[in-house]
Lab assay of single mutants.
Amino acid sequence: IEKFKLLAEKVEEIVAKNARAEIDYSDAPDEFRDPLMDTLMTDPVRLPSGTVMDRSIILRHLLNSPTDPFNRQMLTESMLEPVPELKEQIQAWMREKQSSDH
């Protein structure tokens, strides 16, 4: 029984630690959010139409349809242009958020 109590305490400790580690990014500025999924972008790319999306989301879309989801023009992965300035701004915002939450 004592071992179970210790195990339960350890589990509670881990759960509390994980809860502290989770950071809420739901208040991200609109320009940091993917327009299709409304999630925080981690690897922004510009489509030929000028729309900026997260790379993982547009690549997932391209698996089903080789088109720009906003104007239905033909689109391939090679046409995606990285946006390193925005990526750095997002990373800086995330770092600031992490340091203010801890």
Rank of each mutant, 00 (worst) to 15 (best):
I1K: 10
K3L: 02
K3V: 04
F4Y: 08
F4L: 13
F4I: 10
E9Y: 15
E9G: 08
K10Q: 11
K10I: 04
V11E: 12
E12H: 07
E12D: 13
E13V: 06
I14A: 04
V15S: 10
N18P: 04
N18S: 10
A19E: 13
A21K: 05
A21V: 10
E22N: 13
I23R: 10
D24E: 14
D24A: 07
D24V: 06
Y25C: 12
S26C: 14
A28S: 13
A28P: 09
E31A: 10
F32R: 14
R33N: 06
D34E: 01
P35H: 00
P35S: 01
L36I: 15
D38G: 02
T39Y: 03
T42I: 11
D43Q: 01
V45L: 02
R46G: 03
G50N: 01
V52F: 05
M53R: 00
M53V: 15
D54H: 01
I58N: 01
L59P: 01
H61P: 00
H61D: 00
L63I: 12
L63A: 14
N64H: 05
N64C: 02
N64I: 08
N64K: 02
S65T: 03
S65L: 01
P66A: 11
P66G: 07
P69Q: 02
F70L: 00
R72C: 00
Q73S: 06
T76L: 10
S78I: 05
S78H: 02
S78V: 02
M79F: 03
M79L: 07
L80A: 06
E81D: 10
E81G: 06
P82R: 05
P82Q: 06
V83E: 11
P84S: 12
L86I: 08
L86R: 06
K87E: 09
Q89H: 07
Q89E: 06
Q91N: 07
Q91H: 10
Q91R: 12
A92C: 02
A92Y: 10
W93Q: 05
R95G: 10
R95W: 05
E96P: 03
E96H: 03
Q98R: 15
Q98P: 13
S100V: 13
D101I: 05
D101S: 04
H102F: 08
